[in-house]
Amino acid sequence: MGEVIVVTSGKGGVGKTTTTANLGTGLAKLNKKVVLIDTDIGLRNLDVVMGLENRIVYNLVDVIEGNCKVKQALIRDKKYDSLYLLPAAQTKDKTSVTPDQMKKLTDELKSEFDYVILDCPAGIEQGFKNAIAGADRALVVTTPEVSAVRDADRIIGLLEANEIGKTQLIVNRLRADMVKRGDMMSADDVIDILAVELIGQVPDDENIVVATNNGEPLVGDNSLAGQAYMNICRRVTGEQVPFLDLEAKKGIFSWFKRK
């Protein structure tokens, strides 16, 4: 039996979709069978971040409404045979799906996949309620800013109220230089405030922009963000992995390593 993981944040633009794409791709690299579900109906984006936007035939709402079978709507990844995407509908809205329908779908999928990962829309309304309905675990993404941390706190409270078994935090877009000079909260500062388990800290890395431009998640490459995401994937599978030193400068050695 697989695990259903929801990637959520409250605030928009903190990196939920990027995290979902990298988590899915990384777990597939670790030979896990993974399905990603974009639950952001009306504002789908996981398809473009994964580079699969040209292969969409059916979507989540088609599956829920019974217009097609689940298998017909799943898009296989370009690189990994064990990775699939169920895209959101673009022309419907969040009320096209109910929490009960989502739970039924994720329950069905987790009997066949090791991980069912849901990309949650921003906000705390219907879309959020749909995304968390069947979740066994939640990964809350935040950035080290007051607005994002405040929203993360609200989300953590709602996840607790909905009895989601496990909630872990990813602090995204950290800048080691700013943390060092006291102009940015560190991951530890954020943990201190939110009192939740940390599962990853991801540096603000321009390679992420390039990867998104190309529609190819960078997880597992030798960029700092790529390593950070791979570490998160390992931790998700239960492995103990020490946190990256985000201050690791691109010294002369790594310059030589680059092709």
Partner: peptide, 19 residues
């Protein structure tokens, strides 16, 4: 006081009333 400390203090206060 560093701006990250200011951020922490403000957050702690705002979260008490939020919670």
């Amino acid at each position: 006081k560093s701006s990250s400390d200011v951020a922490k203090d403000r957050l702690k206060l705002v979260l008490v009333s939020d919670r």
